[in-house]
Structures are given as C-alpha cells and as structure tokens.
C-alpha cells in the first residue's frame, strides 16, 4: 500500500452511514499491548525495536483478514503526516524515532501501530455510534495475535503498559462528536461537566492541545483498570452518548424554533464563504464546515451530502493537500489550494 495513493480518496469507512451519525461522526476502540520480556519504549534499543517488529509484523500479516504493512521509519515525513490525518497512526507515531511500523486494513477501519508508546496498539473505527462492533473487531484480532506471542500481563494489574494511565485492559474508547447546537445555545459547558463527572476526557477533535475548532469534540474514557472492556463500551453506548445525542437534538430543535433566521443566516453565509473563498485556513474552513454540516442535518441545506463534508475533514489538511498537489506548499499556497479543493467539492452543480 502506497500512502500517496490514499491522498485523493476519502477514508472508505467514513462515508457509510452509522447510527446517530449526524451527531456521532465516528467511533474508535483501541487496545494497548506489550510483549513479555521486552523493555518499554524509553528503555528500548533500536536493536530490540527491530526484534519487536520481527515478532509482531508476521503475526499481524497472517491474520484471517488482509493487512498492508507500512514501514513508518522509512517513508517521507509528509506521508507520515498523511497517515496521521487519516487516523491510521497517532501524532506520537509520526514524531517517534527508530524502527516502527503500522499494519492497515484496506478499508482503513483497522490499524495496528508497532513500537508506538506501547509495543502494539490496535485500533478499529466505524462511522456513527458503533463501539461494540469496534470492540469485537480489535478483540478478535487480539485473540489471534495472542496465539502467537506472549503479552506482558500481571494478575493484579492486568495488561502492563508503558504509562500507568493505560494499565489493566489497555482500552481507549472514543467517539468524535459534532455539537454545534449545544455550543450555539450556550450549553457546551454542561457537556464538559457531565464528561468530568463520568471520568471521561474531552479533547478538540481537530487542532493542537486543548483548543477546539468548529464544535468537533472527542470524548474518551480515562479509567482502564478495574472495569471490563465490555463495561466501558456499554457505558458509552447505553448511558453517556445517548444522553449527549438527546441534548444536542433538543438544542438544535430550540435553535430552529426560537431563532430560525439567525441560524439560517449563519448556515447560508458559511456555505457562501466556502463556495467563494480564494484563500482559507484550515481553522476557518472547519468552523464554516461545522455550520454547513449542521445546516444539512436540520434541513436547511438540501443539495450537499454529508459525505462530502466528512471527506473534506481529511482533504483540507496540510499533508492531504500537499500529496494531492504533488509538491510541498507553503502556508499561503496551502490556503489557496485548500479554497480550490473546497470550492470544487461544494460547488452547486
């Protein structure tokens, strides 16, 4: 699999509709594992990193499903960025050093990073709220790999991880949420408070650090010890996420009923700018796309399919733009090319 081939296509899985996908953009479940008898990342020599690759790569490539292997250490920097923009590897894996790799399913809804913070991190994705399906997939792959290797496991602490915050199940469950209604009605801090009460972490789905751009949030569990995998998932799918979806729907309804012209104006202006801008930063584009996405879901914009907007989340990012342009672009050239890509995607005819 050549990373360059990916840049012009959307991630195949993001465009299938999933449950509640107007609010829950995607689901992800990740498991962290380490090999018994090997040091963790900070104390691992390049030689030992290679040994880990030699153990885990064949195990991943002989699964009952076909995976493609990419040597992350060898590919170009922009290709690493591209993989990260598609969620196939983490930013830490982009910045990492030494022998490391990733095995990817063709549909891009599963990837396994080798020599990231832990020796093996496997993650499955699905559109909408489908955490159970994600868990089943990684769990089943974990079972197959476990037949070939021994993972570091402790009777009291469970699966041992380099950082104690992932200890136990090594599971990280997360959903990407689009909450423009809560934001516009000034209720977003309630969502943050609820997340805190349930021991969940909220992050901006795009952008660096704690900054959020365009009402997209990522919600994930923090407790990995003492709670079984299925329990973490059912907490999300039966308790937490349905509540958030309910609040967001109610907020959208309030907006439509109480200030239809204001909302309409916001949405149509956003679409107008996206269709006409000649220079646009990724931050501005995400803010406007958030409003257009809301417009599509509350029946204010009819001619644009949500899939087009979801695709743009990938295609407006720096590495995707540069791979598509076939050359490196400085920030101004990027803003110009980004505007062109968006205009083409959202043009009325």
């Amino acid at each position: 699999m050549n990373p360059a081939d990916l840049s012009s296509q959307p991630s195949p899985w993001i465009n299938q509709p999933g449950p509640d996908f107007e609010i829950v953009i995607s689901s992800r479940v990740r498991l962290a594992r380490n090999l018994e008898g090997y040091e963790f990342k900070p104390c691992l020599s390049a030689q030992r990193q290679n040994e880990i690759l030699e153990i885990l790569t064949p195990a991943l490539l002989s699964l009952d499903q076909k995976l493609y292997y990419i040597d992350v250490d060898k590919i170009a920097a922009v290709e690493r960025e591209l993989l990260a923009e598609r969620y196939l590897i983490s930013p830490a894996h982009v910045r990492g050093k030494g022998p490391r790799g990733v095995a990817i399913a063709e549909e891009e809804n599963f990837s396994a990073m080798i020599n990231e913070e832990d020796h093996l991190r496997m993650q499955a994705y699905a559109p909408g709220l489908q955490l159970k399906a994600c868990l089943d997939r990684v769990n089943q792959i974990d079972d197959q790999i476990e037949k070939k290797v021994r993972f570091a496991f402790h009777p009291r602490f469970g699966y041992l991880t380099a950082c104690p915050t992932n200890l136990g199940t090594g599971i990280r469950v997360s959903v990407m949420l689009h909450l423009p209604g809560l934001k516009m009605t000034g209720q977003i801090d309630k969502f943050f408070a609820a997340a805190r009460d349930c021991n969940l972490a909220v992050r901006g789905a795009f952008g660096e650090g704690s900054e959020t751009v365009g009402d997209f949030y990522q919600l994930s569990n923090q407790v990995t010890l003492g709670v079984a995998e299925a329990e973490v998932v059912s907490n999300f799918t039966e308790k937490i996420v349905p509540k958030i979806v309910e609040y967001e729907r109610a907020a959208r309804q309030t907006l439509i009923e109480q200030s239809p012209y204001v909302v309409d104006d916001k949405i149509q202006r956003a679409l107008g700018v996206l269709r006409n801008a000649r220079l646009i930063s990724s931050q501005e584009a995400l803010v406007l796309l958030s409003q257009v996405r809301l417009g599509v879901h509350i029946g204010r914009i009819f001619e644009i399919q949500v899939s087009k907007i979801n695709n743009l989340f990938f295609h407006l990012q720096p590495a995707h733009l540069q791979m598509r342009a076939g050359k490196s672009l400085d920030p101004d050239q990027r803003d110009s090319f980004r505007a062109q890509v968006i205009r083409k995607a959202l043009s009325p005819n």
């Binding site: 769990n139 974990d142 079972d143 476990e146 037949k147 021994r150 993972f151 496991f153 402790h154 009777p155 009291r156 602490f157 469970g158 699966y159 104690p164 915050t165 200890l167 136990g168 199940t169 599971i171 021991n199 923090q222 407790v223 990995t224 010890l225 003492g226 709670v227 079984a228 995998e229 299925a230 329990e231």
Partner: peptide
Amino acid sequence: LLPLIQRTHNGNTEHCGKTPSSV
C-alpha cells in the same frame, strides 16, 4: 505507583476484564 494508579483509575487497583489465554 499504587497511589498514582488509584488516582488515575477512579480508585481501582485490580484488573477486571480480558485475560490472555496463557493465564
């Protein structure tokens, strides 16, 4: 590590869930 583990995992100190088949 125990106090740190306890605080990051909502007071839990015992694994619960999947175990490797080698166990």
